[in-house]
């Protein structure tokens, strides 16, 4: 079992919803990332999703687009991102790290070279937005060979017929894109998410994380009752943007507060479920 799979299994065992924050590597500056990763863990992250900057993030909304632009001013490359993970691992051997990004930087390195490098620095899983299971030949094998988990996206429009490919080729968890849209957009339709989650849970053979559009503790609380993990990104990245000129202390304070809000909400939801079982 991989580090990510073990983590998800142990959380399930104790009835705990995983909190998975996203930040873009190299945002706002290259030397900010490792410290931010440690902060996220300290404030309750179970898994970290680390964005790999790409010049044309076509599935991301304006908040993450700007984060990517900030990182690319410093020419943050896939190699740089792997280096951040290596340094992070010097002090944290436990928290799984998922790289999230687009395919072309990985293509440019070559699938095998990338997989070897990623696994050797302590990356646990890879989520590539524009790599559906159908095209994943070669990519899949390269990741599998070195024991990296493959996280695939599933959306409200994914037909049942495509879920078996996700079961077969994915591992670790499935990322449920909770709305039709780009990252950080509009309000979530709870009823729609609930209906889709019922459908997906019966068909998918691994934990489901819910992401896109989760802005506050109240929404996270609702989502914790539907999925195994809650993924938050744009709301944290916005805080990085707002505090970039104020210095590390203020930025960490703001992000720490938001993380605490999410963690508390998930804990409350988890406690409620336990309570409901006991009565």
């Amino acid at each position: 079992m991989s580090r990510l799979q073990k983590k998800m299994a142990s959380l399930k065992q104790v009835g705990k919803t995983a909190l998975i924050p996203y930040i873009t590597a190299g945002d706002p500056t290259p030397n900010a990332t490792v410290a931010l990763m440690h902060l996220l863990v300290e404030k309750g992250a179970d898994v970290i999703e680390l964005g790999v900057p790409f010049s044309d993030p076509m599935a991301d909304g304006p908040v993450i687009q700007k984060a990517v632009e900030r990182a690319l001013i410093h020419n943050v490359s896939l190699d740089d991102v792997l280096e951040y993970v290596r340094v992070f691992r010097e002090q944290d051997a436990e928290t799984p790290v998922v790289l999230m990004g687009y395919l072309n930087p990985i293509e440019a390195q070559g699938y095998e070279a990338f997989a070897n490098a990623a696994s050797s620095v302590g990356v646990d899983a890879v989520l590539t937005v524009d790599m559906p299971p159908e095209e994943s030949k070669g990519y899949l094998e390269a990741l599998q060979q070195v024991g990296l988990d493959r996280v695939f996206l599933v959306s409200p429009t994914t037909p049942g017929s495509r879920l078996s490919a996700v079961n077969e080729k994915g591992s670790g968890f499935v990322y449920y894109v909770s709305l039709k849209g780009v990252t950080g957009s509009k309000e979530l339709d709870m009823e729609d998410v609930a209906q889709n989650m019922t459908r997906l849970k019966s068909k998918l053979n691994m934990p489901i994380g819910i992401g896109f559009g989760i802005k506050d503790g109240a929404t996270a609380f609702e989502m914790a009752n539907l999925g195994s993990a809650v993924i938050v990104g744009s709301v944290l990245v916005k805080l990085i943007e707002a505090n970039q000129s104020k210095g590390r202390y203020d930025m960490h304070l703001a992000i720490g507060e938001k993380m605490t809000e999410f963690r508390d909400a998930l804990n409350r939801a988890d406690m409620n479920r336990v309570g409901a079982l006991n009565t």
Binding site: E134, E135, S155, P159, R162, V177
Partner: peptide, 22 residues
């Protein structure tokens, strides 16, 4: 059938669009 011209082409799209493309 999947849109390949030799090694080129294909469908490298975000999941939300896969059903619409199909």
């Amino acid at each position: 059938e999947q849109g390949h011209f030799g090694p080129y082409g294909g469908i490298f799209a975000p999941e939300t669009l896969m059903a619409a493309l199909e």
